[in-house]
């Protein structure tokens, strides 16, 4: 059973870069663990710390004004490798949702499988949210998964977002695919008999 996701209101961390790849989210040299915990410490490692491991004051995770449960990023977020460690790192750091105008496919699946909600908004709405956050780091968003809506309280704009009903059901109820698949084993065996 995973943590259930319903309604989340939070301040945000803006990362207005495009094509943020999974090697930036969690560099390969930190993939050597054999457990899922602990990756949050190295989230965006090479942007967050300089070569002597001092925090880089220019990077948003080191700016005290910006904190919260929602990461807001530029388009094509999570491109590159299939490493689920990227989703573990973002969730491990404490984020519960990522907002962007476009996500890479495998990252999106990996996030959904870890209770981390990827929220796709229009490029215009993304730009508006980033502007609100630049003006006021205390600006908040509300993500309502059952209603599939995202509200920017600074502008009073609300948008609908897409998510497939099966995945939504899994997130809202804290279930995962394995629970579903294991319950469906008889059908797998019947399929094998028929085809193989």
């Amino acid at each position: 059973m995973k943590e259930k996701f319903t309604i989340l209101t939070s301040t945000c961390v803006p990362l207005p870069l495009e094509n943020v790849d999974t090697d930036q989210i969690i560099p390969a040299r930190f993939l050597k663990a054999t457990v899922k915990e602990g990756f949050g410490d190295n989230l965006f490692r090479d942007w967050r710390y300089d070569k002597e491991d001092n925090p880089n004051p220019d990077f948003v995770l080191n700016q005290p004004a910006y904190k919260g449960d929602i990461l807001v990023a530029g388009k094509n977020f999570g491109c590159g490798s299939s490493r689920e460690h990227a989703a573990w790192a973002i969730a491990g750091y404490g984020f519960r949702a990522v907002v962007s105008s476009f996500f890479a496919d495998i990252f999106k699946n990996n996030s959904l499988n870890n209770g981390l909600l990827p929220v796709v908004v229009s490029p215009e709405f993304l730009a508006e949210i980033l502007t609100s956050l630049a003006k006021d780091p205390a600006a908040t968003l509300t993500i309502d998964l059952p209603a599939q809506s995202i509200a920017n309280h600074a502008t009073h704009h609300t948008a609908f977002f897409e998510i497939n009903p099966y995945k939504k059901d899994c997130l809202v109820n804290g279930l995962d695919d394995i629970d579903y698949l294991l319950a469906n084993k008889a059908r797998i065996e019947a399929y094998e008999k028929k085809r193989l």
């Binding site: 689920e84 495998i106 699946n109």
Partner: peptide, 16 residues
């Protein structure tokens, strides 16, 4: 695929 899906495939030879 991600690691959750590796687990699904190991457990059931299927993914969603």
């Amino acid at each position: 695929i991600g690691t959750s899906e590796v687990e699904m495939t190991l457990a059931t030879q299927c993914i969603m």
